[in-house]
Computed example of a mutant assay.
Amino acid sequence: MKRSGPLFTLLAGLVLALFMLSVNATSGTGSSSYTDSSSDPAEPTAPPAASTPAERPSPTRAATPSPSPTPTKKAPADARYAGRTDDDSASVAITLRDGEAVAYFCDGRATESWLKGDVEDDGSMRLTGKNGAKLDGRIVGDKVRGTVEIRKRTWAFTAPRTSKPSGVYRATSEVRGQQLDGGWIVQPDGSQVGILKRDGKPAKAPRLDPDTGAVVLADGGRLTARPVVP
């Protein structure tokens, strides 16, 4: 019995030592999981907003100048022209109106032609008539210079600008069963030339009264001629 006391005491001490060891182990684990709030870092502030580059002002565009208006071309003025061929064998008269022209070529015997067409802004003209007749001319100053081609023959001419009663006249009518067609050119000096066709047969035309347009025929018949315009 005396020997079991120390043994008991030894066992009690061993149990106590094991208990303390267990408590220490448990306390160490708990302390390692504790976090001291005083040691927490300061709350992170919101990240600064990404700086937006300042809007660049739109480059100022130079004002585009308005295009200059295209000058409006103007057709040659209305006018009358009357003259002769360079060889003085025939007459030419031209009347312009609203950018169009009508012309008459006449030698006073058997050759004649009526021609018409447009006049360009630069004063040039290309007029055409029956059987391939044509007139090519241009207004130069106060006259028309050009050529007339009829039946493969060509005449150069100059026709100065003129005024009433100068110019070109025409009369068509049926008289005493005959179909009459006459053309006249009155020159600035008062001289005139014309052809009167009777049923298509050409002959020298009787004189025309420019003031009234009256034409007295050889057989007593009468015609009235009018100025020709386009």
Rank of each mutant, 00 (worst) to 15 (best):
V102P: 01
G123S: 09
F105V: 07
A101W: 09
K116P: 00
A101R: 12
S124P: 03
V102E: 10
G117V: 02
G123F: 10
T111M: 08
R126I: 08
D107G: 06
F105K: 07
D121N: 13
D118T: 05
A133Q: 05
C106Y: 01
D118N: 05
A133S: 15
A110D: 12
N131H: 11
E112M: 12
V102D: 05
V102I: 14
D107K: 12
L127D: 03
T128F: 11
S113D: 08
E112Q: 14
Y104L: 15
N131G: 03
C106N: 15
V119Q: 02
V102R: 13
D121Q: 10
D122N: 15
C106L: 04
G123Y: 12
T128S: 15
K116M: 13
G129H: 05
E112L: 12
G129P: 03
W114N: 07
A110T: 13
W114G: 00
D122A: 06
L127H: 06
L115P: 01
M125T: 03
E100R: 15
S113H: 01
V119A: 01
G132V: 02
N131T: 07
R126T: 14
A110G: 08
D121T: 15
E112P: 00
K130G: 08
M125L: 15
T111W: 02
T128V: 14
K130Y: 03
T128D: 09
G123N: 08
D118S: 08
E112K: 10
R109P: 00
F105P: 02
S124E: 07
A101Y: 10
D121F: 15
V119S: 00
V119K: 00
G123A: 11
M125D: 04
L115Q: 09
G117Q: 05
Y104P: 01
E100A: 13
G108S: 11
G132A: 04
C106H: 01
F105H: 05
G117N: 07
E112G: 09
K130A: 13
N131R: 13
D107R: 11
E120T: 12
D107V: 02
E100G: 01
G132I: 04
Y104H: 11
K130R: 13
L127Q: 04
E100S: 13
G132Q: 04
L127N: 04
N131K: 14
D118F: 02
R109D: 11
D122L: 10
A110Q: 11
A133E: 06
G129C: 10
L115G: 03
V119G: 00
A110F: 04
C106V: 14
S113A: 15
D118P: 00
A133L: 05
N131F: 09
T128R: 14
T128M: 10
E112V: 02
D122H: 10
N131I: 02
A103I: 05
